[in-house]
């Protein structure tokens, strides 16, 4: 009866990830669910970008969080739940792609262009349906690792150090991969952003 009346601290949007991780590690399922709700949108988008298929991304998202729950005790840097779970998502996506066996697993062509002028006006950039299609196609030409690194940096705001930790890479490698991914993305999107469509 006393246990029923015992109150745990409320989970609010201000509750930091680190506190939720520690509570989830003690078996509080509400804390893990809060982590899920906080990160599921980003993780699913990350997986959709890697897998390029919505239904696969849904399944991979569920698998990612199920693995995260199973391995949560291993997370000792409590505040780094986001890079940690994105690292798991990356592994899940690569496994799924190996099963599908029709995606680029090796590094993509490094012969990327260097000229970048003219540049678009950032305030006039509008992601309409056509541009989104080109964007998706451009992302699809990047190798899995390169795409994942770029997404972690630009879409999910991870620092280079966090990406390096998630990938098990050195920081210069992360920077190099993201730089190359950016150049390729840029070369493919720039004509559509500056009106110089080919």
């Amino acid at each position: 009866m006393l246990r029923l009346l015992q109150r745990t601290p409320a989970i609010t949007p201000e509750t930091p990830d680190g506190a939720l991780v520690q509570r989830a590690q003690k078996g509080e399922s509400a804390a893990f669910k809060a982590l899920f709700e906080r990160h599921v949108v980003g993780v699913r988008r990350f997986l959709r970008d890697l897998l390029r298929q919505g239904d696969l991304a849904d399944d991979a998202t569920q698998e990612t969080f199920a693995r995260a729950h199973a391995q949560l005790a291993k997370l000792t840097d409590y505040d780094r739940f986001k890079p940690w779970v994105l690292g798991i998502a990356r592994n899940v996506a690569f496994e799924a792609r190996r099963v599908r066996q029709h995606d680029v697993l090796e590094d993509d062509d490094d012969s990327t262009p260097t000229a970048v002028i003219p540049s678009p006006d950032p305030e006039r950039v509008l992601l309409d349906a056509e541009l989104e299609k080109h964007f998706t196609e451009a992302m699809g030409t990047l190798s899995g690792n390169r795409r994942a690194a770029l997404l972690m940096r630009l879409d999910h705001g991870l620092a280079y150090e966090e990406i390096a930790a998630a990938f098990g890479w050195s920081i210069p490698t992360v920077k190099n991969e993201i730089h190359r991914a950016r150049l390729k993305l840029r070369a493919q999107l720039l004509p559509h952003l500056t009106g110089e469509r080919t």
């Binding site: 988008r45 540049s119 678009p120």
Partner: peptide, 29 residues
């Protein structure tokens, strides 16, 4: 030009993120 591109790139990613929909995935987890 470099900054223009970087800010445009950032704007593209932001706009994509704003459109996300998430199915009810918790039950599966």
């Amino acid at each position: 030009h470099e900054l223009n591109w970087l800010e445009s790139e950032s704007a593209l990613f932001r706009q994509r993120a704003g459109r996300d929909e998430v199915a009810q995935l918790w039950k599966g987890v």
